[in-house]
Simulated assay, not measured.
Amino acid sequence: MVHDLAYVRKEMQAQQPAPQKDGGVARWLRANLFATPKDALLSIIAIIFLVWAVPPVVEWLFINASWSGPDRSVCATVAQGGIQPDGWSGACWAFVNAKFDQIIFGRYPDAEFWRPLLVGALFTILLIPMLMPKMPYKGWNAFLLFLALPVVSFFLLYGGVFGLPIVDTSDWGGLMVTLILSYFAIAVSLPLGIILALGRRSKMPVIRTLSIIFIEVVRGVPLITILFMASVMLPLFLPEGMTINKFLRAIVGVSLFISAYMAEVIRGGLQAMPKGQFEGAASLGLKYWPTMRLIILPQAIKLVIPAIVNLFISIFKDTSLVSIIGMFDLLGIIKFNFTDSTWASPVTPITGLIFAGFVFFIFCFAMSRYSSFMERHLDTGHRN
């Protein structure tokens, strides 16, 4: 039995309606906020909460805030010895404005502000092309950013050469210290973490054992302990008359601490690599180091980009712990200025802490967004 499967349309098909437009605010709201009854209920609750909470916060932060003034009087009520009416409550941005130079530079001399500003400009000029995936001369860019710039920055900030007056590291503080510590910790921890991860996977017992001991010991103690040891205990073991700069000790302690965690992140990426990648490299005649440099490490690092950036964000925030060894980072210098009786008022501390939190959020959010950009660019866990 033969079936005739051929089909020829004898009438024109009726005209179909135009496809619905994908864009539009109403469609976005339906798709993202009111797709189901459950989503609609949660969205309505969230909107009600925002309507209740946001206006008072905005009023306290901006509308009723004191933006300028010579002392605490602009941030206190009449009953508290100020000029504000009784019952007034608002942020004291005048305190942040008056202490802004200290918040950024610590006790760095005013006449020498151009030196950290110049270092910041050089860092920005070198960082921007480094973050752009398709910029040429990446090797030279990395050399200038991670090797040349630290040396130039030290002589610019510390002085003692080319007629620059010496500014001791004890006078450094504020956001400048936070950024310097974070920069060195990030620049040192990534290569050192890779070396430790490879050492832990090494077939040589001595190297593997030393790597494991370092990683486990450092990961087994909190950062505050390492900073305390570097600041208080280390000088006791040095020869008489020999000292190490406290700022340098903090940099080394923070860098070694984050390197141990970085090693475990990199090791996770290495373990996720299929065995076929190693076999393919061996079939091409590649030795161990070319295999790691050209094939394994680029793929392993790409797999753990979110974890690496999470470590960078964590260490940026953990730099606040250096206050226990007498150094004043961004948060430390703000808290130190709370003791200034000229600005003692009920709203001064909360305003300063909100400003510090906002600065930390800006930097951490920027690192998070760049991480997402790199994941999409490298197609890590995304589909184009």
Results as ranks from 00 to 15, higher is better:
Val265Thr: 05
Ile251Cys: 06
Ser231His: 09
Ala272Lys: 02
Arg219Met: 02
Leu223Val: 02
Lys275Asn: 07
Phe247Met: 13
Ala260Gly: 11
Gly269Phe: 00
Met233Thr: 15
Glu264Phe: 08
Phe247Trp: 13
Pro274Ala: 04
Ser255Cys: 14
Ser259Lys: 05
Leu248Trp: 13
Arg267Asn: 09
Pro222Arg: 02
Leu227Asn: 03
Ile224Ala: 15
Met262Phe: 08
Val218Trp: 00
Gly220Glu: 02
Ser259Cys: 14
Phe247Ala: 06
Met273Ala: 02
Leu238Arg: 14
Gly220Asn: 12
Val265Trp: 07
Glu264Pro: 09
Gly220Ser: 03
Leu223Tyr: 04
Lys275Ser: 05
Lys275Tyr: 04
Gln271His: 01
Glu264Cys: 10
Val254Thr: 11
Phe257Asp: 03
Glu264Val: 06
Phe237Cys: 12
Arg219His: 01
Arg249Val: 09
Phe237Asp: 06
Gly253Pro: 06
Gly268Gln: 00
Glu264Thr: 01
Ile251Met: 10
Glu240Phe: 14
Val254Cys: 11
Val265Ser: 06
Leu236Glu: 14
Ala272Leu: 10
Ile244Tyr: 01
Gly253Val: 08
Leu270Cys: 09
Ile226Met: 07
Glu264Asp: 14
Ile266His: 07
Ile224Glu: 12
Tyr261Gln: 05
Gly269Gln: 00
Leu236Ser: 13
Ala272Phe: 01
Leu238Met: 09
Ala260Ile: 01
Ile258Glu: 15
Gly220Cys: 03
Met233Phe: 14
Met233Glu: 11
Ala263Phe: 08
Met242Trp: 12
Phe237Pro: 07
Glu240Ser: 14
Ala250Asp: 06
Gly268Ala: 05
Val265Met: 01
Gly241Glu: 10
Gly253Cys: 11
Ser259Phe: 08
Pro235Ile: 11
Glu264Leu: 13
Val217Arg: 04
Val217Cys: 09
Ser259Gln: 05
Phe228Asn: 05
Ile226Cys: 06
Arg249Gly: 03
Met242Lys: 13
Ile226Pro: 09
Gly269Thr: 00
Ile251Phe: 10
Ala230Thr: 11
Gln271Gly: 05
Leu238Thr: 13
Ala272Tyr: 07
Leu270Thr: 02
Phe237Leu: 14
